[in-house]
Simulated assay, not measured.
Amino acid sequence: MFRMLPVMLLAIVLTGCASAPLINKESTKDTVLLVGLNLQGSTPSQLGHYYLLNLVDAAENDVQVIVRPRRTDRYMVVTELPPGDYQMVSWAARTAPGVSGFADVSLRAREVDIRFSLEEGAAHKLSQQFNVEHSQDRYGRRIMQASFGPLQDNVAGRMDRRMDQIGPDWVVINEPVGVVPEKEETPARRGGLMQFLFGS
C-alpha cells in the first residue's frame, strides 16, 4: 500500500494541474483576453514586479490594466476590458510592495503599439506575448528585463489548453488578435556637428 502512495500523490498533482477554474462571466466585462507570458532566467520565488498596461479605447479614453504575474504563470488573464477596439500604447513596471533585492527599475513607461478588438462574450489570445527575464548584474543584484514580442508556439499551446477549459459560456476565438503596425523608417540625413546639436 505504501508503494502506491507516491503514485497516488502524483495522480492528484497531475489532476490538479490539468484542470483550471472556469471563468464566471459575471466577474468580467464580458470579454477574456489571454496574454502569453514567457519567464526566463533565475526567477525568484516572488517575481518582484507588477505591470501597468496602458491602453486607449475607440473613444480615445485612457484605460489601464494591472497584471501581477506569479512564478508559476504561463499567461496573464485580463477580464476588465469591455468589448471594443483597443490600442496598447505603453507598459510600465513597478516594484511589488515588500519585495527587496532588486536593482532599481525605471518607472518610465515603455512605448508599444498593439491594436486589437475584443468581441462580446468571447475569449481571445493576444498575438504578442510578454517576455520577462531575470538575471544578476555585476554587483550581484537581481535585475529584470521585459518586453513584448511575437507569440511563440509553445506559449500559444499553453494558452490554447487554458481556452479549452475556460467554460461553456464563452465563445473561444482561436485566431490570435493584435496587429503591430510596421514603423516607417525615416531616412538618415547627413550633416555636421552644428546641425546635429541644434537641428536645421
Rank of each mutant, 00 (worst) to 15 (best):
Q145M: 12
L151N: 03
A59K: 08
V7W: 07
A188F: 12
Q128H: 14
K29S: 12
L52C: 01
R108Q: 14
G121L: 13
D113L: 06
E120A: 15
D169H: 12
Q136T: 10
V65L: 09
R70Y: 01
T79Q: 11
T15N: 11
E80G: 01
M163A: 11
M8L: 15
D160C: 00
Q195Y: 08
F198E: 05
D153L: 11
G101Q: 06
I66D: 11
P69A: 05
D153P: 00
T95Y: 04
P168I: 06
N24H: 11
F102H: 15
E60D: 09
L118P: 02
G157D: 11
R94I: 07
R190H: 08
N154F: 10
P187N: 07
R138Q: 13
M1E: 05
N24S: 14
D85P: 00
L14G: 06
G121A: 12
E119S: 13
N54A: 09
V13M: 13
S200R: 11
Y139A: 15
A156K: 07
R161Y: 06
Q87S: 09
F116M: 03
Y75D: 03
F198C: 09
E184G: 05
N61C: 00
P83E: 08
P44F: 05
Q195S: 12
G41C: 08
V32R: 01
L193T: 10
H134W: 14
Q87N: 03
Q64S: 13
G84L: 04
L37Y: 12
G16T: 12
A123S: 14
P6G: 03
L34H: 05
A109G: 03
G101N: 07
P21N: 06
A156F: 02
P21R: 11
R161F: 06
A11L: 15
R141W: 11
W91G: 02
E185T: 13
L55Q: 04
A11R: 09
A18L: 14
F148A: 02
V179Q: 08
L14T: 13
V35W: 00
D73H: 14
I66L: 15
G41T: 04
L37M: 10
